[in-house]
């Protein structure tokens, strides 16, 4: 399978990465190179093979459903590019 320019732009939008026309062109070549490389996986017979979900067979750990953390609002927003009274500020979302 290979990707065309329109697909590259659509994927870039899905990934929320702005791309220029020139970047999209370059990415198309690179992505097709990588997709060509991974194509060989198709030749492996995987009938009856389960997909791997965990490298180590182990039961999912459980913990008590209790609050163990919190009251750290200042810490949570400490690295925010823009914040106001412990809120993250973003451009207007709802008109």
């Amino acid at each position: 399978m290979s990707v065309d320019l329109a697909t590259v732009k659509r994927v870039a939008h899905l990934a929320r990465i702005a791309v220029s026309e020139e970047e999209a062109q370059r990415m198309m070549g690179e992505l097709n190179g990588i997709l060509g490389f991974v194509e060989q996986l198709g030749e492996v017979d995987v009938s009856g093979v389960e997909p791997m979900t965990s490298v180590m067979p182990m039961a999912m750990k459980e913990r008590d459903d209790v609050v163990t953390d919190g009251s750290k609002a200042d810490d949570v927003v400490a690295n925010a590019p823009v914040s106001d009274r412990n809120f993250f500020l973003v451009p207007k979302v709802v008109e």
Binding site: L41, V44, M52
Partner: peptide
Amino acid sequence: DAYYLQAQKVRTLIK
């Protein structure tokens, strides 16, 4: 299915 699922199955075979 064509990519991710196939790769995770191949991973089982590698292991």
